[in-house]
Design a protein around this nucleic acid. Structure first.
Lengths: 145, 145
DNA sequence: ACAAAACCCAGCGGAAAACCGGGGTATACT
DNA sequence: AGTATACCCCGGTTTTCCGCTGGGTTTTGT
């Protein structure tokens, strides 16, 4: 699992959506793109993917925009990344069959590595990120005074 | 940490070198490339990197080749990958400084993810790989009979 | 001397990632 | 009803990187 700009953009956007999860005022792409400094046309693609993945819902027309589809507590970082990479539609993920023995062994290890990484990503939800960010914000303020 | 062909090639080569770690007959690039089905010119680069990283030592001239620099028990998979990616010399690996807060938090999580992956890679040595491969080889033979 | 090998540097090609653009369609406000 | 707003779809372009290749040099064994 890599931290691509794609992943980061998606998480930033979702985080901002999580901030106003209570009221269901939708947020516009333009707004998010401007706030998070993301190319808006690109963000549009990502949000479309997240919508198809059921993480986000959209409202069309004037005053439209995007909302989080589920509560921030129920969306893990793994959910987000899987949604993004699942969209790329990795055709023919060979699953490590029919390799020379040594390669197969190496592949097995990598499955373990992936598992370990996913375990961490599974443990964090959008809400965790939000909380952590807000706590940090408070801390920074204290130092400032 | 990705499983690139680069990583896989390097591990396959090291594994073969580990096989004849006892005797110090050096192994030629050509030989390894042929056995493991790796483009030889590319393997050359990888071995050069591994040499600079101190994982492998070389003997120049006729009858020359490569040998493992240390015992297979002392070389972890993490050592190998670090050596390879360290060579790419990621100029200005910013370490996550000076980002907007939300980005910084995301970056922190990724450090944790990386850590989890590295922990796994740390635990496996070349010898472990070798043992596992050989055990599997025996098993396959039994099924064959 | 000659051949066999490692060494070094530099560049190429294709695929994936990141990023636009244009035209279409639904929705809200007046 | 009409119009402005913003999502929707789909394709094209740019940029970056990985895997790979070539040419020429240096070292060593016979």
């Amino acid at each position: 699992m890599e931290l691509s700009s794609k992943s980061e953009y998606a998480l930033l956007a979702l985080l901002q959506l999580a901030d106003r999860y209570q009221d269901d005022e939708p947020l516009q792409i333009r707004q998010i793109a401007a706030d998070q400094d993301i190319p808006d046309r690109y963000l549009e693609q990502l949000l479309a993917t997240l919508r198809r993945g059921g993480l986000v819902k959209s409202q069309r027309g004037a005053k439209g925009g995007y909302l989080l589809a589920r509560s921030p507590w129920t969306i893990s970082l793994l959910d987000v990344l899987r949604c993004l990479e699942g969209a790329d539609a990795n055709i023919a993920d060979d699953g490590g069959q029919d390799r020379p023995l040594a390669s197969a062994i190496i592949y097995e290890i990598w499955v373990e590595v992936d598992q370990a990484a996913n375990d961490v990503l599974q443990r964090y939800t959008l809400q965790d990120l939000k909380d952590r960010r807000d706590a940090r914000k408070q801390l920074d303020l204290m130092y400032y005074i």
